[in-house]
Write a protein that binds this DNA or RNA. Sequence first.
RNA 1: GCGCGCUUAGCUCAGUUGGUAGAGCAACUCGUUUACACCGAGAAGGUCGGGGGUUCAAGUCCCUCAGCGCGCACCA
Length: 696
Amino acid sequence: MPDRLDKLKVPYNPQETEERIYKLWEESGYFNPDNLPGERKEPFTIIMPPPNANGHLHAGHALFITLEDIMTRYARLRGKKALWVPGADHAGFETQIVYEKKLEKEGRTRFGMDPQQLYEEILAFTLENKTHMEAEVRSLGASCDWSREKFTLDSKIVSKVQKTFKKMYEDGLVYRGKRIINWCPKHQTSLSDVETEFIEKTEPFYYFKYGPFTIGTSRPETKFGDKYVVMHPADKRYAEYTDGQKIDLEWINGPITATVVKDEAIDMDFGTGVMTITPWHDAVDFGIAERHHLDKEQIIDERGKLLPIAGEFAGLKIGEAREKIVEKLKAKGLLEKVDEKYVHNIKTCYKCNTPIEPQIRDQWFVKMQPLAEKALEAVNKGEIKFIPDNFRKIFLYWMENTLDWNISRQIVWGIPIPAWFKGEEVFIGDEAPGSDWVKDTDTFDTWFSSGQWPHLVLDYPDGSDFKNFYPTDVMETGHDLIFKWIPRMVIFGLYATGRVPFHTVYLHGLVNDGKGQKMSKSKGNVMSPLELSAEFGTDALRMALIVGNAPGTDLALAKDKIKAYKHFANKLWNISRFILENTAKLEGEVALDKSEQELEQEKDELLTSVTNHLENYRYHLAAEELYHYTWHRLADEIIEDSKKVKTPSRQQFLRKTLKDILIVLHPFMPFITEELWSIMNERQAELLLIAAWPIK
RNA sequence: GCGCGCUUAGCUCAGUUGGUAGAGCAACUCGUUUACACCGAGAAGGUCGGGGGUUCAAGUCCCUCAGCGCGCACCA
C-alpha cells in the first residue's frame, strides 16, 4: 500500500491542508488564464466587486467569494479561459468615516487637520487593511488572478477616472451648478441620493397664521426667510389671490411683504393647501423657486446653526431654536394649532442617521437622463439578464426615474476632481492654466470610480485584456447594490465602450445569523468567516453558504448547518478511503456489467442535472443534488452493496465515479477535493483545478 | 403613496417549464456490520397563510384577503 493512502487513515484536517493547497494552486499559475493548458478559446470573465479596504471580511464577503469562485472554477473545468480579477476599493466616504471614528477614539478630529497629512494617514491605514483583506480572500479559496489585481487608487485608474470626467464635461454630460444637494451636517459633505435613507419620525406639525393664510410646517426654524406663499393654481379656496400679488403681513421678526406664487407642486389635500417656501433648504421649494425665478436665501449654515437672518435666534442650533421660535410665534398670536403626532419620513445620512440639511452649493453633477436612456435600451433589448429576474424591474424603475447625480464630495479621501476655477471660469485638467487659478478641493463620489470598474480593470481602451475579456460574463454582487453600483457600471460601460459591461447580473442576499437576524456588532451576533472556516473548514463553510440559498434571498447561517457540511467533508474523505483501499486500478478498461451500466446511467443523469443547474446559476440546487447523491446514494447504498459485489466492473465504476464526483464537487469544495485528487493520482502532476468536466 | 418579495415539517430553508411535497438541524426507536459514531438502519412529522378561480391535474398560473419583510418616494 503506497504511503499516500496512509493520509486517509486519519480524519481530514482542513487547517493543515488548505494553506498548502492554495499555495500549490497559486504557484501553478493557473489562476491566470494566460497560463491555462490546452486550446482554450472561449473566455469567461468575472470582475470581483472590490472589497472596501478598511476592515476585515465579513460573512457577506464569504458568500460572494464562494459564488464567484464556483463560477470561475466551473468555467475553468469546462475548458474556458477563466478570468476572475480581484480588486480593492479605497471606498472614499466609507473609509473616511471608519478613519474618523479611529481619530475620535484618539481624541482627534479631521476638522482643522492638514488635508495632505490626513490623506497620508488614511492611505497608510487603507494599504494595511488591503493586505489583510487579500490574505482573507485567499483563505476562502478564491481562485482569482492576483497578477491582475487592481486598486481604485492605482495611478492608472485615477488618471482614467479623471479623463472620463473631462470627456463627460466636454460632452455636456457633466456640469457644475449651484443646486440643492444633500448635506450631512455631521460629516460636512454632500451626499448622493442613494447615500441617504428615510427614517420615520413622529413630530409636532404646526399651523401658523401667515397674513390671510394658514400655513402648516414641521420645521418652524427654517421659516425666517419665507417671503413667498405658494398654492395650487386650481385651488378654488384661494382663487381670489393672483400669482405675483404682494401681501403685507406680520411674521417672526416683524412685518414683511410676501408674494403669492401659484405652482402645481402643491398638494391641495395636504394641510391647508398653502405653504411658504425655503428654497435653500428644501428640494421641492428649490424646484418651485427655480421655476418662478424666486430669491433664495441661506438660513442655516453648514454646521446646522441659524445665520444672522434669524435675528435674535442667530447662532442657535436648529434643534434648540425650534421651540423658542414656536414660543415667540405663539406669543405674537400667530400659532393657530399644533398636531402633536405628525408621522413623516425624514431624510438622513445613511452612515450616521443625522438628518440631511439640504443646502445650495456649487457642485459637479452628472446629467443622468441621456445616459439612463441607453441603459434602459440595453436592458430592454435583453443584453443584460438579471438573476433573479425581479431585479430587472427594480433596475428599470430606477433608470426611468433618475435624478442628476451629485459627484462632488467634501472629503480628502478620494480621487481629486481635476478642476480649476477663476471667478466664474472653469478649467478641467491636471495642471492650472495660470497662477491665479484655484484648485477644486473636492473629491469624486467613490461610485464615480467604481462605476467604471469593469472596463478600467481590463485596461480600457488599449489593453489586450479589454480586447479579450470585455464585456464580462457575470457581475455577482449583493442586491443592496442594485442602485448604488449596478446602474453606474451599465451607464459608464455603455458611455465609454459602447457595450454593456456584463451580460448577467447575479444578485445574492444578505447573510444573517442562524435565526435570520441581521448580524450587527451591537447584537453581538457577528460571525467571522475566518473563525468559521478555522473551526469547520473552508469547504464546509462554503457549502453552508450555498446549499438552500436561492439567488437574491437572504440566508440564515447557523453553526449547525456548517457543521453538517463538515460531516459531509468527512464522509467524502471516507468514501475515498474505502474506494481507494478496496479497489485496484485496472489495466485497461473492462466492459461494464448490466448493474454497473445502470449505475453509470444514473450517475450520468445526476451529472447532467448538476451541469444544467450550474449553467443556469442554480448553485443551491447543484450543491444539494451532489450532496445527496454522494452521501445517500453512493455511500449509503452503492458502497454498501459493493462490500458484496467486488467484480472488476464494479471496481472500475467506483474509481471512475469517485473521480467524477471530485471534479464536480471541486467548485464547491475546492480544498478537500484537490487533496483527495492528489492522493488518488499516482502521478500527481496534474491538479484537479484544471481537470476536465466529466460530461459534455 | 408606489413597487418588490415572503408566508411549505419543531427550527432554518429548497422546490427550473403545473403532474398526488424535499433537505439540513432538532426530536424518536434500534444498531459498536473493520470507509466513516463527524456513522448506519428505521419510523415519525406538513389539508404547502385564508378564500375563490383556471385545469384532467396547482405549493407551482390568475383574482382576493390577512400577516411579515424590504426597496423606492422632493407631501410642506
